[in-house]
Amino acid sequence: MMQIESFLFTRNQRQDFTAFVRPAAISNRDVSTIANALNAINDVERLTRAFPSLYGFALSETVLFFRHYDSGRRHAGRPISVVEGIGARMTWARHFARALPYLLAHQDDVLNIADGVGDIETLTPTPSPVREMPDRSAAIDVDDTAYIEDFLVRRQAERLHVPFDRGGLILLAGALAEPRFASPLAFAFGTNGDVIAAFAARGIDFDIIGTFNAEQACFRSRETGQKTGAVNLPVIDESLDDTRPNAPIRIEDTSGVMSMRAQPPRVQASPAFYTPPQIEPIELPPSGGAAFVPESERMLTMREARRQSQASSQADVPVEPHSTFDPFAVLRRIVRLLTGKRD
């Protein structure tokens, strides 16, 4: 049995983005690391609960597996995202890594924390309870395992890059199920370069990356980012009902073996992220804005304010009353006295 804790980072109307539920070993700084990195996802509406972004890595003393998607809730008209998942102390890292293929296949249940906390609008931050989870493991039946053999050799110097679709997901799951990797694989599936860079700034180095823009699977150098080898995407199974590239993550589990062959390939072009609303043409008034003020009313700079203040202080200095003493008058008087002249 492995001990796990929950993580839930979202916002409600009252409180901005907060880790409402978090594992005990996750600090404010750790939460901030996740928040700052995922802040670089501009269009969260493309991430759905059925096909969310998935992240798995070690942070401080915890190994985390979480998802990121649009909750469907809104604040001031803007989409509110949810980051939710589970974590285990580093002492459970091996068990956690072994369970990842199972957890990935059942992400909709095991990562679903938001539904278990009651009314999200009245939620206040609480530490996560510790839960026990039976050890899980699963084999992934992937058609072509050559990329795994390759990755076992290349991992030190290269990363596996996959597209953010079901084909990429199969490759991710296949790699996660491989027990021969010397240490657990860190992955970011459904992400972009800014997110990766932000995590890297905190020393989180991913082994498998699934970016929105990637169209092919390949190996890339960790140092230069240059492509170093190609990887075939999984075989298509046309018999599947749901062949959308971002159809729900659901993997058949038969006799302990998860068949991921039954996944459709990534289709050409990324999904239409935006459906511009039908807009009725409207009559626009002339562009508004505050008016400029006359020069005499403009704001003063600090120096101008100082000069004005100093000038006003000088003006305020009480002026001494005019003296009645007039030295010239006295002089004139003396001259008159000496010359004997009168006015």
């Binding site: 700052n36 501009n42 269009d43 935006y274």
Partner: peptide
């Protein structure tokens, strides 16, 4: 995305 997609940017999550 704001100009073309006519959608407000997602709320900021960090700094």
């Amino acid at each position: 995305d704001f100009v073309i997609g006519r959608k407000w940017p997602a709320p900021t999550m960090g700094r």
